[in-house]
Design a binder for these strands. Sequence first.
DNA 1: ATCAACCCTCACACCGGTATGAAGGTCAAG
DNA 2: CTTGACCTTCATACCGGTGTGAGGGTTGAT
Lengths: 148, 148
Amino acid sequence: MLIGELSRRTGVRAHQLRYYETQGLLKPGRATSGYREYTTDAVLTVAQIRKLLEAGLSTEQIRFLQPCVTGAAADLEPCPESLSTLRTRLEEMDERIDTLVRSRRALHDYIDVTERRASAVAARGGLCPAEVVLEPGVAELVDGPGLA
Amino acid sequence: MLIGELSRRTGVRAHQLRYYETQGLLKPGRATSGYREYTTDAVLTVAQIRKLLEAGLSTEQIRFLQPCVTGAAADLEPCPESLSTLRTRLEEMDERIDTLVRSRRALHDYIDVTERRASAVAARGGLCPAEVVLEPGVAELVDGPGLA
DNA sequence: ATCAACCCTCACACCGGTATGAAGGTCAAG
DNA sequence: CTTGACCTTCATACCGGTGTGAGGGTTGAT
C-alpha cells in the first residue's frame, strides 16, 4: 500500500511515517515512480511505534527494541558486547517502569483517600493522611504485591 | 540554601532548577536580594522530579502528581471533577506502564534466547522468541525479577 | 575598594517529535 | 490532455527540556 493508505489505516500522518523511516523504524519498498510501498505488516509496526513513543521511548530506543519485539532477529550473531548493551537497556527499562509504578501507586492512593473523604463528609476531624497505608482490595492491574 | 548549593547537592544545573520553578514544580522563597532560598526538602523534591522526567513524564504531568507523591495535599477540596481527571491520569499511567512492561518482557526474552544459543550451541532448542508486544489485550503482570 | 564567587533575568540555540507549506512528479479518470 | 488526488523532497517552525552566554546586581573577603 502507499503512504496515504497506511496513514489512513493507522491514524498517523504521512509526514510522521516518513520521519519514522528516516529514523530507521520503517523500511518500505519503492515503486519505479519513487512512491513508498508498504506491506500490511507495516500497520502493526506503526501501531507498535506509536505505543512505544507514547510510553516515552525515543525512536532510537524503539529501533533497539524492534528486533526483539518482532522476534525477527533472533538469528543474529550472538555478539556478546551487544548482549551486554541489551542488558543495560533492560535495566534502564526496569528503572523506568519502577518509577512509573511507584508514581502510579501514589496517585492511586491519593485518589483513594480523596474519594473516601469525599463520601464521608459527615465525618468530622482533621485526619492527616500524610502516611497512606496500603489497603487490600481495589487491586486493578498493577496493584498488589506483584512486580517483584 | 541558595540555588548553587541545591544544584551541587542534586547534580542538577541551576538553570534547570529555575526552569522547574517556571513550570510550578519548585517554589523557593526569595531573599531581599532576590536570591532564591530553598529548604532542604527541595533536595528530595528535585530528585523526585528528575526520576519522573527520566521516566518520560512531562513537567505538567509531574505537577499533577506532586501533591499525591508528597502526600501534602491530601487536605484539598475533594473537588469531584478534579477527581475524575486524576482517574483519567491513572488510566494513562496504566497504559504507559503496560506498554513498557510488554516491551521490557520482549527484550528480556530476546536476551534470554540469544544468551541460550550463545552459550549452548550444542543444545537443540527449537524455541521461538517473543512474539508481538502489541495486541489490544488486557493487562498482565510483569514477569520475574528485576522490578523492585 | 576591589575582586571573586555567587546570584539575577533575558535571549538565543540545540535536539527530538510534530506540523505546514512550497514546488514539483505520478497516475487514473474524464 | 487536463484535472485532481496522490506522491516526492526540501524548508520552516512549533513545543518541551536543555545548554550557553550576555549584562548586571549581591555578598563576603582581602
